[in-house]
Design a binder for these strands. Structure first.
Lengths: 338, 338
DNA sequence: CTGAAAGCGCTAACAT
DNA sequence: ATGTTAGCGCTTTCAG
């Protein structure tokens, strides 16, 4: 694995290593001819400046690190697409690390990335992270970091967010306007700020429309199918069914519909269902799933653009960008005429 | 962004930098006390060996690079989980790059990763890549690379694969056993080896069971919903419908079912459908989707384990691991009694 | 325009 | 057990 170094090239052409360096860095103070000659034979010899060595002497690496908690649905995949589309067009390379929803792993990932001299970081935190001190320290040292999703709005850093409370509210209100009188929310973990916010939105909407305690319920199912299915089955067994479900995400919504169907309960004729964080299949299943679409791709783009500004020191303060979503009403929440 | 270096620590304690280095590398030739003293004040000062500098002098970085073409479905997400589970337990860090299905970007990613001194690479190629020379060169130089999926079985390198032909065959044969007499295959692009293989399997199964040219068709829809939906609608309009569809993947299968439903054609009562590369929702939709499950997580694990062997030089030759899948028969391909 | 030399932060002989 | 020194491959003054 011995590779060609700057010295080899220099020796071969009887020039100094500085000249070779200059040739590659497009320096002004080098004769065009020598430059070309050097580049040519370097090419031949398969020489390429060693980025590690470059990093040791320079400040910029043109590498950006991205930390995500997971890839289980399309969410972060699209965020990453947004990030990459902006960044690669500007000549940056994007290195991704996955934290598996564990804060410790996330911290380790961030450190690895920083130590590997990324020019900046986009961090999608795992959970309402306890230990943000390290990040704050780095930011204060001047290290460019932008956060995306799952972070408190009050956190003093650059970040791009989605307003889960607001859209949880709208999704619920849509159900109310459809005339559903008893609505349950299948919620995510209370440890997760974003799903907690959806629950807040749910409760706010009910409060606004004068629902009484008997007319709604929040059931913490988490975001995975198995548990959601079990809880819905319980409700059926206990004859404790609402007229509609507001679900923490599409997977839970689909699971709910599936269990209901197994029990000969039809959506939306018997019960209405609305999902959240719309996935591609919302439009392909039957009934088509109503859901809140998050601007994932745009969030990635915004975060990348924000990071660029931070790197170029065009912004100092802690900016927060909150992007808008949309409520896509399809079949699963359209109440039959009565 | 000035950070503490080994010198600072040395100066502070009036020891040489070698001692500090030794302390951190757990070298045998250092007194326990000094070691502890150094580590303690290093801690205080916030010192941490600069990995870039370390890389310049050492060979090992304990970083592994992974290149994937995309994240659009769960496929590569699970592969990555498999890879990470093995590698992080061995003290490695996994850096991921995404090629967006473009060979050029893939090549650039690979170079970035190699130049950043990853100890090894797991490459999931984008398409039947034309230009594999660079990879071959690196492998010949002794650089540890393992390929995963979407690569010719004949390619002389370590790789882990799925036998798409075989499982395409099984999926089709299942349809035949169900008694479907006319079967169409909605195929992926012919440029993509893996989907082409599924088509091969499809054709083989039909040949084995004596289907005539009139009883089947291969329609190249690609792997995205929009086009598949349009093509299926065309078939309906032309009254050119088969008794069953063998689809290149779940998304296309779901799209097909969706279009059929819009035209009052029910699956599986009127037409059978089977998918490929099973996704989580196969079990949640109605009708539940029959599909071929690929061992994604295991493929990731195998690739990681293989890479470790290559790195430890426990293997030299070009090994190929082919993992088994399963055909999960659900509702969408169960032919009604006649 | 080009070369010599210092230095980036660290490791690894080589001394002592 | 500890210090000294020579690199690792490159960039960047500083001379000329």
């Amino acid at each position: 694995m011995k590779s060609v170094t700057i010295k080899d090239v220099a020796k071969r052409l009887n020039v100094s290593i500085s000249s070779v360096s200059r040739a590659f860095n497009n320096s002004y103070d080098i004769k065009k001819e020598t430059r070309e000659r050097i580049l040519r034979t370097a090419q031949e010899m398969g020489y390429y400046p060693n980025p590690i060595a470059q990093k040791l002497t320079q400040k910029k690496t043109f590498n950006i690190g991205v930390v995500v908690p997971e890839f289980i649905n399309e969410y972060y995949s699209e965020v990453i697409r947004g990030i990459q589309d902006i960044l690669t067009s500007l000549g940056y390379q994007v290195l991704i690390m996955q934290s598996d929803n564990k804060h410790e792993r996330e911290l380790k990932n961030v450190k690895t990335l920083i130590h590997n001299m990324m020019d900046g970081l986009i961090i999608c935190p795992s959970v309402k992270s306890k230990n943000m001190d390290y990040y704050l320290d780095e930011i204060n040292k001047g290290y460019p970091i932008v956060f995306l999703n799952r972070i408190e709005q009050s956190f003093p850093a650059n970040k791009v967010l989605f307003n889960n409370t607001k859209w949880g509210f709208f999704a619920t209100e849509h159900l109310i306007y459809q005339g559903y009188k008893k609505i349950y929310h299948l919620s995510g973990s209370n440890d997760l700020g974003i799903t907690k916010d959806r629950t807040q939105g749910f409760i706010k909407a009910l409060a606004k429309h004068g629902f009484s305690k008997d007319d709604y319920k929040v059931i913490e199912t988490g975001i995975l199918p198995e548990n959601a299915m079990a809880r819905v089955q319980e409700l059926i067994d206990n004859k404790d069914l609402p007229e509609a479900f507001m679900c923490v995400n599409d997977l839970v919504a689909l699971s709910t519909i599936s269990v209901l169907r197994q029990n000969q309960i039809e959506v939306p004729n018997d019960i209405g269902v609305v999902g959240f964080t719309e996935t591609k299949i919302a439009d392909l299943v039957s009934p088509k799933l109503s859901s809140v679409k998050q601007p994932t791709y745009e969030m990635g783009k915004s975060a990348a653009e924000m990071l660029m500004k931070v790197i170029k020191k065009e912004t100092m303060s802690s900016n927060t960008i909150i992007l808008n979503g949309s409520l896509n009403i399809r079949e699963s929440s359209i109440r039959a005429n009565q």
